[in-house]
Write a protein that binds this DNA or RNA. Structure first.
Length: 404
RNA sequence: GGUGGGAUACCCGAGUGGCCAAAGGGGGCGGACUGUAAUUCCGCUGGCUCUGCCUACGAAGGUUCGAAUCCUUCUCCCACCA
């Protein structure tokens, strides 16, 4: 096994907090020396939406680091907890999902997780397996372990209580359920984002109460989304999905605010820490061009989740579409059918370049509609089919249809 | 159990009889600019067979020439006191 010092360097890199630090070092050292079995590193995800994004990837990649060193990744799909709703970082009660929605999400989730985690050593479990059968007596035993005052110390609850916003009692249950998961899988360390700190620590208490050696807690920084401020989340619409099409992924990375570049290099690419430091320095002293550097970031990320070839292609496509402002070559074809002539707003709607005729009219008025690059700004325009066939209709810079 | 507050467009939120498809902000979209799907600036932001019509202010009914605004009933939500 890899020596303890080297393991610690790898495992601690990029982390926000490790609690308790010395305890973690002891566990890793003992495992490295073969004095105890490899660590069981737990990570739980609630399948609240079907797609994994780069924010999840930050923690999953750390989990993979554990795997690479021979430790076991214990991935918990929150089939039950997703129905409760994690209050972490929330200013409002989360909408609860039905069992069916959760199951559907969980399936696609796992497929995406495999893009990041190694197949072995890996355990995947669903917390519905042990949480669902719990009876009222179990629930009472669990809830007795924590006081209301402790719950209200959490920043998110405190803020909501202060502002007289609703807090559902079930939300109090969430951290306890997550902690119960730790007991169920006998984890040695649990990973999560910094907003998970409270929940992660609850696991320690519950494990101790159950007579287990309590887990250590390792948190990773939260990754901001494409808007540059809010934590990446699908509900905020600022997420870069692990399964996004390469061109989409490339473009989203390019739209990141410049100051976020270094953080992304550090947390979501495979570049070694020294290289990231060099990039940070280069950007700071002006020796590295921000535009070129962001391109590199986008290439690295696309290469990681799609392939290096896809990254090259995505960059080329980006250049034709946004730098040269010309038409990409993989535009979907819209069948003109029998209609002749086509009324421009109808055509825009039928080809789904615009959501409604009214939107089409607005786009036309704003000079956003082009046919083979030539602006069409007449709302009443009727176009004979012969004049349309084979040409490319475009709305704004990102929506295209080849007319056939 | 009691008291009070509330439900408005994608979200937050103003509006208390006609000037309301409804202020303002956010988000989104578009245009200019740019290394960029960054920043900044400007504009747009219910739908349709579009100088008009339809739908919309929790639901249903009512008053009125006219209702997001008034009345009745209902549904749902929240806070506070106990």
């Amino acid at each position: 096994m890899t020596p303890a010092a080297q393991q610690l360097r790898i495992l601690l890199d990029g982390t926000e907090q490790v609690l308790p630090h010395d305890e973690f070092e002891r566990k890793v050292t003992a495992a490295a020396r073969g004095e105890r079995p490899p660590l069981r590193a737990k990570f739980g995800v609630d399948p609240t939406s079907a797609d994994l994004h780069l924010g999840h990837a930050v923690v999953l990649r750390k989990l993979r680091a554990f795997q690479r060193l021979g430790h076991t990744a214990v991935l918990i799909i929150g089939g039950f907890t997703a129905q409760v709703g994690d209050p972490s970082g929330r200013s409002a009660t989360r909408p609860r999902l039905t069992r069916a929605e959760v199951d559907a999400n969980a399936a696609t989730y796992l497929a995406q997780v495999r893009k990041i985690l190694l197949d072995d050593p890996l355990e995947v479990t669903n917390n519905a397996d042990w949480l669902e059968p719990m009876g009222m007596a179990d629930v009472l035993r669990l809830t007795a372990r924590m006081t209301v005052a402790q719950m209200l110390e959490r920043a998110d609850f405190a803020a909501r209580y202060e502002q007289r916003r609703p807090i559902a009692v079930s939300e109090f249950l969430y951290p306890l359920l997550q902690g119960e998961d730790s007991v169920a899988v006998r984890s040695d360390v649990e990973l999560g984002g910094t907003d998970q700190t409270f929940n992660l620590l609850v696991g320690r208490d519950l494990q101790a109460a159950a007579g287990q050696d309590p887990q250590c807690v390792l948190t990773m920084p939260l990754l901001e989304g494409t808007d540059g401020s809010a934590k990446m989340s699908k509900t905020y619409g600022n997420a870069i999905g692990v399964d996004d099409a390469p061109a989409e992924m490339f473009g989203k990375v390019m739209s990141l605010p410049d100051p976020l570049m270094v953080k992304y290099f550090r947390l979501v690419t495979d570049l070694p820490p020294e290289q990231v430091d060099a990039i940070a320095a280069g950007l700071a002293d002006g020796s590295l061009h921000p535009g070129q550097t962001k391109r590199r970031l986008a290439r690295e990320i696309v290469a990681l989740y799609a392939s290096p070839e896809a990254a090259t292609a995505a960059e080329a496509r980006f250049d034709t579409q946004f730098v040269d402002r010309s038409v990409p070559d993989d535009v979907a074809v819209f069948d003109l059918g029998d209609t002749d002539p086509w009324f421009l707003p109808s055509l825009l709607r039928a080809s789904r370049l615009c959501a409604s005729g009214a939107e089409a009219r607005r786009m036309i008025a704003q000079r956003a509609v082009r046919l083979d690059g030539k602006v069409l700004d007449d709302e009443e325009l009727a176009l004979p089919r012969a004049a349309l066939r084979g040409r490319v209709l475009q709305v704004g810079r990102r929506r295209f249809a080849r007319l056939g």
